[in-house]
């Protein structure tokens, strides 16, 4: 059960579509029109720089057409780049993208209100990056 995205030159295998960054908004708009109105999640994972790849993040959006048709849009975002925001299409993306920005440090371009959501405003760093020490001190409370 996979959605046809051939006019975007994209192939969905097992609900998963790897989308280039510049096509994300178009694909998402198309999917929204196709009845994918349920926003499941937006996740990000940080991958530090290695020999072959620069410092980058994996971002995944999962959208659902009720009752059970899923599509997961997967993107690779270099750390120097920003991911286009989907907050204009699904309201849920607002808080989800803020959370991923707060914790993983992915910037979302075009987000209406990109502030920290979980941590205090003045927090240094993004804790879910792989290079962030788990027991980082925060004066004066720990």
């Amino acid at each position: 059960m996979s959605i046809d995205l051939s006019h975007f030159d994209l192939v969905a295998e097992n609900d998963i579509v790897v989308v280039p960054v510049d096509k994300l908004v178009d694909v998402a708009t198309y999917l929204r029109g196709q009845g994918f109105e349920y926003f499941v999640y937006c996740c990000a994972a940080h991958y530090p720089a290695s020999e072959s790849e620069p410092d980058r993040a994996l971002v995944e959006y999962r959208l659902r057409r009720l009752p059970a048709e899923d599509v997961a849009l997967r993107l690779w975002i270099p750390s120097s780049d920003a991911c286009p925001s989907l907050a204009g299409l699904w309201q849920a993306a607002d808080w989800q993208e803020r959370e991923q920005f707060d914790l993983v440090g992915v910037r979302f371009a075009g987000h209406p209100d990109l502030r920290r959501i979980m941590l205090p405003e003045d927090w240094p760093g993004h804790p879910l990056r792989r290079d962030y020490a788990i027991d980082t001190r925060h004066f004066p409370w720990r």
Binding site: Y132, I134, D135, W141
Partner: peptide
């Protein structure tokens, strides 16, 4: 207790 955001 070793988490960055929790007071030990």
């Amino acid at each position: 207790r070793d988490i960055y955001s929790v007071v030990p």
